[in-house]
Structures are given as C-alpha cells and as structure tokens.
C-alpha cells in the first residue's frame, strides 16, 4: 500500500514535471515578473528612511533579494487552474478517479518550482554581478531551515488558495477572488515594505495573520537577520493545520453542491 502511494506520487510529479518543461518559456517570463521586491529595493535604498531603525543598505539588499527568492517558490495559481478545469469539464473525469484531486494541483505546483529553479538562479547571478559589494553568506544551517520554511510557507499559501478555489463549485468565475487574497499578501507579508518599518499597532495586527510568516519569516531566515525561529515555524505549522482542516471540509461541501447542481 505504501509503495503504491510512493509510486503514485512519483508518477504524478514526473508527469507534471514533463508538462512544465513544455512551458519553460512561460515559466521563465513568470519568474521575471516576480521582480516586485527588487523594484521596492530600488525605492528603499534611495529613500533613506531606514536610518535610525538599524537598517542599512546591506540589510535592505539581503532582505529584498531573499523576499524575491521566497516569492518565487511560494507562487500559487491553483484557483485559476481549478476554475479552468471546472469550466472545461475536466473536473468530472477527475472526480471519477480514485484520487483526491488536490494532489494533482499540488504536484503541478511543486513540479513548476523545480522547473523554475534554474531561472531563479540565473536571475540571482545577474543581481549579484551588479551588486557584488552587497553579497552576503547565510550559514548552511540557516539555508537549510529556510528551505523548509519556504516549503511550508508554500503549503500554507496553497491550502489557503485551495479553500477559496472551492468557491468555483458555486460560482464559475470565482478566481476573481484571488485578487482579494493578493491584497493582504501584498501589504502585510513584508513584500513591499519590511515589517520592521511598520508602525507598531499595524505590525501587531499583521502578525496575527498568516501573511508575514509566508514571506517575511523565511526571507529573514535566508537573509541571516535576527528572527524568532521557533515562533515562525510554530505559526507556519499552525496555519497549515487550520487551512488543511478548512480546505478538506470545503472540498466535501463543494463536491456535494457540485453534484446537486449538475456537473
């Protein structure tokens, strides 16, 4: 039984990887389109506001480049592909197969990350060539921890989007909701401004949401900044657990509704 599952996981991943390789040109462009943190670095490095917060240009550089990396490997588009599969009628055959369709989408995301890896390395190389004086070396242990943190962060984001993708069962244009999910992610995760620069009350509110943990926390880990490792992982795992429960429940409800209305 275990072996069979392992084989299924391997086949799912390798098939999706083969598919993603077909889309390598798009994935390359998509990787480039994640440059927001680098644009923000441009502004922050010039604005000079950071003086007084213990933030210097080296800090800003390592922070935003790390944020760029974290964002690359936590990209989620499950709502769009779920909606498309629903509209084009692929969902019905998926439902007739003895596998939770969740895994199809999850594996396709992971396969995409593998495809994306060389492109991200290429972009990073270019960045470092132009900014070699700001280069930093995180410890291997921190790198290891941040890779794990990035993967859990990706899982948390994926589960959150999965929950909302279930709305497609009720409304066939639900992927528009993705725009709403993007808002708190954009402004509360630390993508455009480090949380350290937030006014205290807003920072405290942000820390009550999952968003800082899916970007700021792994980014700081990777940048080698001071960060509460235990608290970060605790929050990530907690949120993953909560979203997993809700997601599973939403799936059950969605399928029941889908079958009620007609596939």
């Amino acid at each position: 039984m275990k072996l069979k599952h392992l084989n299924l996981a391997y086949t799912l991943l390798s098939t999706q990887y083969a598919l993603m390789l077909e889309y390598r040109a798009e994935i390359f462009l998509w990787a480039i389109s994640g440059i927001l943190p680098l644009i923000m670095y441009g502004i922050w490095s010039e604005a000079g506001v950071s003086i007084g917060l213990g933030i210097d240009s080296k800090w800003l550089f390592s922070y935003f480049v790390s944020a760029f990396i974290v964002r690359q490997f936590t990209a989620v588009w499950v709502m769009v592909s779920f909606e498309e599969d629903n509209l084009e009628g692929r969902l019905s055959p998926y439902l007739l197969q003895p596998i939770y369709p969740f895994w199809r989408y999850f594996s396709s995301h992971v396969a995409e990350q593998i495809t994306r890896l060389p492109f991200v390395l290429l972009i990073l190389t270019i960045i470092f060539i132009f900014n070699n004086q700001l280069f930093w070396f995180p410890s291997p242990f921190k790198v290891f921890l941040s890779i794990i943190a990035i993967f859990i962060a990706f899982t948390v984001r994926f589960l959150l989007h999965w929950i909302f993708a279930m709305i497609c069962f009720w409304n066939d244009r639900a992927s528009a909701i993705e725009r709403l999910l993007l808002l708190p992610y954009l402004f509360l995760s630390g993508l455009v401004a480090p949380l350290d620069t937030f006014p205290e009350p807003i920072k405290n509110i942000a820390l009550l949401t999952p968003f800082p943990y899916v970007l700021s926390f792994p980014a700081k880990l990777l940048a080698g900044h001071n960060v509460d490792i235990f608290n970060g992982f605790l929050n990530l795992i907690l949120w993953a657990f909560v979203f997993f429960i809700i997601g599973f429940w939403a799936w059950k409800k969605g399928v029941r509704h889908y079958s009620g209305m007609g596939a």
Partner: peptide, 8 residues
Amino acid sequence: RLNAAVYG
C-alpha cells in the same frame, strides 16, 4: 502512466 498510477 499517470492513470495507471492513479489506479495502482
């Protein structure tokens, strides 16, 4: 191949 894995 994928379907074969799905059906074990």
